[in-house]
Design a protein around this nucleic acid. Structure first.
Length: 828
RNA sequence: GCGGGUGUGCCGGAGUGGUCAAACGGGACAGCCUUAGGAGCUGUUAGCUUAGUGCUUACGAAGGUUCGAAUCCUUUCACCCGCACCA
């Protein structure tokens, strides 16, 4: 029975207070090597922390505490990604102002975060909804505008009818809005603000090489950036050159038509009078079709009435408008080679366009040769029907044909990226106002730096459309250039703008003169260990890398990657295996669990569940198990009586330190916890001196900071365990012999159990006959064997003992069975 | 369609060439302790067999490599995630 009551509520609130009042986790520059640990800051919602938060932030805290104990000067800050649509929507629903809603949410989050024992430096807290923060969003925007990286463009954009705003490419998942899984994104033609992230595409790609991220994370970014090498080729249409991008210039003799995207802004210039009706009909049909439907739709198109001239041979080919060509990739127009491209083939079949084979595979069998082919051949081969290039291998022809066209200034080698410029305009209120004005005289004019921040007006009307447009006083302003009447930009920035540089602001959070002090930032940043979910890989983590590179180009940073190491944590689902959601009824709120078991138990449970990079299902029972363990730990240390220092104990302790240190470094917390449990089981049975027992506490501390702080104190230590020193491995103390011996002892106990089972006996007297060198070992283990086997009396004899030899204590001669490591056993 | 991942005992999950019937936790069962216990301790928990043994069957399925595979290869099935007509 636990002799000492583990009052986690009292313990946890005590240390929460002490840490705050003693400013234990505030970090200052120092001579020690720095280490920057960061979790992606949360979006403060009214419902408080969810289990995913509890998990990811615990991972961060464990790492921060680990590095702190290891002697690093750790920066572990926290902030709130407080601007954004959900706050606005929730606020409207609740009938309160987004600002009030957000501030309340933040207060609630802070309370819960402190209860979790996360060792944040609260003095560096950042809140993106404060003008002091978003002022610098605006500043960055102006800098980008200055450098030509922020620009307006009319284009087909993704529009979420529920959010009532446009979305970035990265915010459309499977044709649906990232915030509304049931809402199809619509296509609209609007003029919007873009950031030219594509200028950095190549660097974003190359930079991945040096990052210590998981292969999967890097691969996903690589695919998202999507670099492809090819050629840009000019086709003359109605006397004007039009460029197309292709990765297969070797098939140019097989081009039998061109397809321009139905969304192409200049499509109308290609449409002949006769075809105008047809094209319009086609476009009308496409309009109102959601992006999702478009993806599923069959390839369709319509003849524009124009013809293009193939630059390689002057052939006249028709130009179609098609629904399957992406408007903003390449030039929005493709050369179609039905013989060698599946999609083109499909289209040609449908509209009866000729198919012309120009590449023959090595294996002729798969190919019809009389002009009819069953399918497109997309592989490499030998060129045919290709004029002077006949007989050339297609790989070589790619180069040669491009060169040929280049000489005639009709084409060139080029690289295309799948990555699009970042559409950051949002037609909503709760975001950073874009610091631009529209003047009738001067056009688009940037706000002057000295007039930043452009603060969000409190008084707006929520309801239809963009609330910002409803405050006329705010909207009407004077032109910074001519002083005349002008109107403010009412679009706000995508919330991802804020999170693209917040990590830098932590280094110098209160600066009102500059975005930050570069010395401070260059000391703390980049992030040494970043932690977050897999969903951020192709959004936030691309943007933050882009911003970092841009700020570097402004001369503000001495590094060019925000996060050197990134750990992608798994998703915690409900116990039913489904995503935790209110509608699913499977939500478990961490704060509730804390009330019942304490934060230490919850934290321990979260990392015991499974490997942290794996998706798992939450199981409240595991908290119960963790809690039981902590109760035992608490009991043991509360009643701690030092024992003499045994070599075996030291061996176990050092082995554990070694294993746990490696596990923690690699986020294998589930395995580290097992090692700690095993060590504790040993200590609690065999006893330990104070020093070695405390090494266990130090290791447990990173998982269970409160109870270990309490016990550290109870053991008579001055100062905080949070600021103590991680135990070092003494390899010399590790002796595998002890493990072998333990195993032998366990085996003997299990053998006894087995014999008991066979004999169907219960309480028995056991005699062991050990080889002389092992008599002491088994004598020392008598108690252990007794408990493990439930035996009442246990005697250990040496095999060469006279009484054994005579049979006096070995009536059945079992001593003959004795082998080293395996004594003879006699039961009676 | 393309890319990535997962599939282990009653359950959650370790384990990536032998030391694996498989860590650790949970559950169940049995025993101990106890006034009692929703606390603690111990054992059992694939099957058969056995004085501490041996065998069979098992790591989604089927083949293969190997002296030897949960672990490597091939095929296949199921589920999850990401991208999605990028020319």
């Amino acid at each position: 029975m636990a002799k000492t009551d583990y009052d986690f509520k009292k313990i946890e609130s005590r240390w929460q207070k002490n840490w705050t009042s003693e400013k234990v986790f505030e970090s200052k520059k120092s001579k020690k090597p720095k280490f920057y640990v960061l979790d992606m800051f949360p979006y403060p919602s009214g419902t408080g922390l969810h289990m995913g938060h509890a998990f990811v932030f615990s991972l961060g805290d464990i790492f921060a505490r680990f590095k702190r104990l290891q002697g690093f000067n750790v920066l572990y800050p926290i902030g709130y990604d407080a601007l954004g649509l959900p706050a606005e929507n929730a606020a409207i629903k609740a009938g309160v102002h987004p600002k009030e809603y957000t501030n309340k949410s933040i207060a609630n989050f802070m309370k819960q975060q402190k209860a979790m024992g996360w060792s944040y430096d609260w003095s560096r807290m950042v809140n993106t909804s404060s003008p002091e923060f978003y002022k610098w969003d605006q500043w960055i925007f102006l800098k980008m505008y200055e450098k030509g990286l922020a620009y307006r463009k009319k284009s087909s954009v993704n529009w979420c009818p529920k959010c009532q705003t446009v979305l970035a490419n990265e915010q459309v998942h499977d044709g649906k809005c990232w915030r509304h899984e049931d809402t199809n994104v619509e296509v609209k033609h609007l003029e919007q603000w873009y950031l030219k992230i594509t200028d950095y595409a190549q660097e974003l790609l190359e930079g991945l090489e040096k990052l210590n991220w998981s292969d999967n994370a890097k691969l996903r970014q690589r695919n998202w950036i999507g670099r492809s090498e090819g050629s840009e080729i000019l086709f003359e249409i109605n006397g004007k050159p039009w460029s197309v991008f292709t990765t297969r210039p070797d098939t140019i003799y097989g081009v039998t038509f061109l397809v321009v995207s139905a969304q192409h802004s200049e499509l109308i210039n290609l449409v002949s009078e006769e075809q105008e009706g047809e094209v319009k009909k086609f476009l009308k049909k496409l309009k109102g079709v959601s992006e999702k439907q478009m993806e599923e739709a069959e390839k369709e198109g319509v003849f524009t009435g124009s013809y293009a001239l193939n630059p390689i041979n002057g052939e006249k080919i028709p130009v179609y408008a098609g629904n399957f060509v992406v408007a903003d990739y390449g030039s929005g127009m493709v050369m179609a080679v039905p013989a060698h491209d599946k999609r083109d083939f499909e289209f040609a079949e449908k509209y009866g366009i000729p198919v012309k084979v120009v590449v023959e595979p090595k294996d002729y069998e798969i190919y019809e040769r009389d002009g009819q082919i069953p399918q497109a051949y997309e592989g490499e081969g030998t060129l045919v029907n290709s004029g002077e290039f006949n007989g050339m291998e297609s790989v070589k022809a790619k180069v040669e044909i491009t060169k040929f066209l280049e000489k005639k200034k009709l084409g060139k080698k080029t690289i295309q990226f799948r990555l699009r410029d970042w559409l950051i305009s949002r037609q909503r209120y709760w975001g950073t106002p874009i610091p631009m004005v529209y003047c009738d005289e001067c056009g688009i004019v940037p706000v002057e730096e000295k007039n930043l921040p452009i603060v969000l007006p409190d008084k707006v009307t929520f309801g239809k459309g963009n609330p910002l447009t409803t405050n006329e006083k705010w909207v009407n302003t004077n032109c910074p250039k001519c002083g005349g009447k002008a109107r403010r930009e009412t679009d706000t920035m995508d919330t991802f703008a804020n999170s693209s540089w917040y990590y830098l602001r932590y280094a110098d959070p209160e600066n009102d003169k500059k975005i930050f002090n570069s010395d401070d930032v260059n000391y703390w940043a980049p992030i040494d260990q970043y932690i977050g979910g897999p969903e951020h890989i192709t959004a936030h983590l691309i943007y933050v890398r882009f911003y970092t590179k841009f700020l570097r180009d402004l001369g503000l940073l001495e590094f060019d990657e925000p996060a050197l190491r990134y750990f992608t944590q798994g998703i915690i689902h409900g116990s039913d295996g489904e995503k935790m959601s209110k509608s699913g009824g499977n939500v478990v709120e961490p704060f509730e669990t804390i009330k019942n078991f304490g934060a230490d138990s919850l934290r321990l449970a979260l990392v015991s569940l499974a490997s942290p990079d794996k998706d798992t299902n939450w199981d409240e029972k595991i908290v119960d198990g963790s809690h039981r363990f902590l109760r035992r730990v608490y009991d043991y240390f509360s009643n701690f009586k030092p024992d003499k220092t045994a070599a075996k104990t030291e061996s176990k302790v050092n082995m554990t330190i070694k294993g746990v240190s490696e596990d923690v470094e690699n986020f294998r917390h589930n395995l580290a916890v097992i090692k700690l449990r095993q060590l504790f089981d040993y200590l609690s049975v065999n006893g330990s001196d104070k020093k070695n027992a405390e090494k266990f506490l130090l290791m447990l501390h990173i998982y269970c900071p409160f109870v270990t702080e309490e016990l550290w104190n109870k053991m008579g230590n001055k100062g905080f365990i949070s600021l103590a020193k991680w135990p070092e491995v003494d390899g010399k103390k590790i002796d595998a012999r002890f493990e072998k011996e333990d195993e032998n002892v366990r085996k003997v106990a299990s053998d006894i159990n087995n014999i008991k089972k066979v004999l169907n006996k219960d309480k028995v007297k056991v005699s062991l006959y050990a080889v002389p060198s092992e008599v002491e070992l088994f004598r020392n283990a008598i108690d252990t064997i007794k408990t493990l086997s439930g035996s009442a009396v246990l005697e250990v004899y040496a095999v060469n003992d006279a009484k054994v030899k005579s049979g006096e204590v070995d009536p059945e001669g079992k001593a003959k069975k004795a082998k080293p490591g395996k004594p003879g056993i006699y039961l009676e």
